[in-house]
Design a binder for these strands. Structure first.
Lengths: 166, 166
DNA sequence: TGAATTTAGTTGCAAATGATACTACCTTGC
DNA sequence: GCAAGGTAGTATCATTTGCAACTAAATTCA
């Protein structure tokens, strides 16, 4: 084995060795955290909003009133997190709940006037940040990134669904 | 406001509206969480390892003994998290600490025999998982994804560094 | 109909996390 | 060689998170 290829850290495994710094789930996690951290701090500092409260405001800002359940789906948050975010926003008067006409367990949640005002402040800032993040990416690269992320999500979903063999 | 063009959700802002489902930091976060969740559950279930303990093992498995500080840098974890992961792994006998020769505050951390055995089990599984995740991606697409993530990280770092205007 | 199951949303509790402060040690500059 | 400041790593405490259990209402189906 005097040939330098058999470095410590990987046995007879054959394929490429595991290097954390090149491992996709790790890379995704790091990129995601870096991308989120500034904006999260900004929203905390400027509006006193957690990232989950921000997400709820963002989807409600798109227009429609949504049930907590619909918010879960739209934000990829779980129902406990959504419940807590809704309560916090409600206490601050940024959203209002009205009993659902069709399901007495559920409420329709919508931004109040104040909530909409916050949204109007927040949205441009968020878009500015995204622009800054993608500065230097061509339109083609942006499209590719979007496509790759979408396919990655789809693969992960597929693995989550059946592949509990992992 | 009777004209239908002023849909709720974006004011006079001009550019594209904010849609959470198309917002890059959100997309990254969702993709990252999905990609990590299966593997995290697998490591928890099969080895009783948290994702941070796993990261520490992964970098130590690359060969060199590292100080906690070096592990922080290699894993993008903060020092408290690293400290806790090291303690847990130490208690389980998967790593050993030896006082650093050059700095009496620090220890060199390395995998024990048992730790290396765990690593040998873990690494192929992690690589299988990554392969499954990237199934259907051409070599070119993988390279592009890697490049895009790297540039994204660099942009985020730059914004984190100076752009506290956010 | 009406028992059994499912779903919407909340609550309580245990565990994980993060900020801060702390000890011990190192480094710098005088 | 020693005071002032910085760094490695740990401990402490408050907050956040996630799971499971719970209530109330809807749905299923015998």
């Amino acid at each position: 084995m005097a040939d330098g290829t058999d470095r410590p850290g990987h046995g007879a495994g054959g394929g490429r060795p595991l290097r954390l710094s090149a491992y996709l789930p790790y890379r995704l996690s790091v990129a995601s955290n870096k991308a989120s951290s500034i904006i999260a701090r900004a929203y905390q500092a400027r509006f006193g909003l957690t990232i989950w409260e921000w997400r709820v405001i963002a989807v409600l800002g798109e227009g429609a009133a949504l049930t907590a359940q619909a918010i879960c789906e739209a934000t990829a948050m779980d129902k406990v997190t959504v419940s807590r975010a809704i309560r916090a926003l409600d206490e601050r008067g940024l959203i209002a709940r009205t009993p659902s006409a069709t399901d007495r367990r559920a409420s329709d949640v919508a931004l109040t006037k104040e909530g909409r005002a916050v949204y109007q402040d927040i949205a441009p800032l968020a878009l500015d940040y995204e622009r800054a993040l993608l500065d230097g990416f061509s339109a083609d690269e942006r499209a590719r990134l979007s496509d790759l992320l979408e396919r990655l999500e789809a693969r992960a979903d597929a693995l989550n669904a059946d592949g509990d063999g992992f």
